[in-house]
Amino acid sequence: MANKINFTKAMIEGLPLPEQGKRIDFHDTKTLGLQVRVSSNGTRTFSVLRRIHGRLERVTLGRYPALTIEQARRKAAEINADIANSVNPAEVKRGRKAELTFSELFGEYLERHSKPNKKTWAQDESQFHSYLRATLGPKKISAINRSSVASIHSSITKAGQATTANRVKALVSSIFGWAISAGLWHTNPATGIKHNKEQSRDRFIQGDELPRFFRALADEQNSSMRDFFLLSLLTGARRANVLAMRWEDISLDRAEWRLRTTKNGTPQTVTLSPQAIQILRDRLPLEPTVFVFPGRGKTGHLAEPKKGWQRILSRAGLGDLRIHDLRRTLGSWQAKQGASLAIIGKSLNHKSQNTTAIYARLDLDPVRDSVNAATSAMMVAGGLTPDMGVVKFNRSRG
C-alpha cells in the first residue's frame, strides 16, 4: 500500500499538501486501517478504511490535532474489534445519523399524538419550549438517559417549581412512551425518577381582595380579556373551555352552556348566572361568529390571555394569583354560602370528591347553597350589586 508511514506528530505535521482541490491519504504502519487524509487547505482528518463483507467502508474519526495520534489509534483499535465481532461500524454510524433528535421526536409526538388526542396539547408545546428545547432538543434520543431527565427535573425543582418539574418529567415520559408504542424507540429514560411531593393549592380571591380585582377588571381596556376573566370566575370553567366557548353551545333562555367534552372526558352543562348571561348578551356579535372570544390564530379563538392577566393583577396588586384560581374562587365562595361538596363537585365537573374536598377546608360555614348565591355574594363583597350596577364596566369592544 502506498503512502505508508509511522504516525508521529512531526511526521503528520510535515506531510506535503496536495494540489488545490485534491486530497492525499497516508496510512499508519502500526494500526490496521488507520489513515490520515490531507486536503489542499492543510486539514488533516483521521479515519479507518476497512473492507467489511466485501465492501470498502470508511469511518471518520476526527481532525488532527483536536484528535491526537494516540486517541485515533485507540478508536481505530475499537473499530477493528467491532469488525472482528461482525459489527459494521459504518452502518452503526449511518444509523446514528438517521436517528431522531429529541426536538424531532417531540415534533412527531405533537402532530401524531398530542394535537389529535389532548385538549392540553398547547401546554405540551409550551413546556417543551420553556424547559426542554435548549437542554434535550438537539440531542439524539439515544443520548438521553435517566440522568439527563433527572437533571432537568432537579433544576426546575431547585428553582422553586416542584409541581412544574413533575409536569415536565411527565411530558418527557409521555413522549418516550408514545415513541415506544409507535416503534420509534425502545426505552423510556423518565422511568424511575422520583416524583416531587405536591401540595394542593388553596389560593382563591378573598373577600377583601374582590373590590380591587373587580376595579382592575373595570379598568381593563380590552373587553375580550375582561369578559374572559369574568366568565372564568362566574362559571368556574377551565381556561381552555372558556377560550373555546362556542355560541352554538349556549342557551341564553335556559341559562346553560353545554361543554361537549372536558378535561376528564365527560360532557358538562354549566349553569350560567344572571351576571354571566348579561356578559354574554353584551358580547352577542352583529355578524355570526363561531366563538364567543374570536381570535386571529390557528384555533380561531383567543389563545393566550397571560398578558391581559398580568395587567389586571398589576392594577389589583395581586401578584400571586393564577388564572386557574378563578375556578377555585367560585368553589370557595360556594362553600362559604353553604353549598355541599356534591353540589360544588357537580358545578365544577370534578370526578372525585377528594378533589372537591379542598374547598371544605377553606371555610367552616354551613353547607346549604349553590352557584348563583356564591356569584351574588362575590358581587356584593367586591363592591358591586348582584347585577353589577355599582362599578360600570366599559363595554367597548377590545
Rank of each mutant, 00 (worst) to 15 (best):
R112E: 13
K119Y: 03
N166V: 06
R167E: 05
P138F: 00
I156C: 03
K115D: 05
H153P: 01
K158A: 14
T163C: 01
F128R: 08
V168R: 02
R133M: 12
L110H: 13
S154Q: 13
G183W: 11
S181L: 11
S151W: 00
K115G: 03
I141D: 07
I180Q: 13
P116M: 07
F128Y: 15
I175L: 08
S173P: 09
I152H: 04
S130K: 15
A143F: 05
F176M: 08
A150D: 08
T157F: 09
T157D: 11
K169E: 00
T120E: 07
L132Y: 00
K140G: 07
Q127D: 13
P116D: 04
T120D: 06
W178M: 10
A143C: 02
N145A: 05
Q127G: 03
A122D: 12
T164R: 10
Q123I: 12
K115V: 13
A143H: 07
L171N: 06
D124F: 03
I175C: 11
T164D: 04
V149A: 01
S114L: 03
L132N: 03
S147P: 00
S155C: 02
F176I: 11
L136T: 01
K118S: 07
A182H: 07
L132D: 02
S173T: 07
S148I: 00
T120P: 00
A150R: 04
S151R: 13
F128V: 08
L132W: 00
G137Y: 04
S155Q: 14
N145S: 05
I144V: 03
L136A: 02
Q127N: 15
S130T: 14
D124K: 02
I141F: 05
S130G: 02
P116H: 01
R112S: 11
S147V: 10
H113F: 14
K115Y: 05
Y131P: 01
H129T: 10
A170M: 02
Q123Y: 04
Q123A: 10
F176L: 13
S181N: 13
Q123M: 10
G160P: 02
G177M: 09
A165Q: 00
T163K: 08
S147Y: 10
P116S: 06
W178S: 08
P138K: 08
G160M: 08
L171R: 07
K169N: 02
A122T: 08
I144Y: 01
V172P: 09
K119H: 08
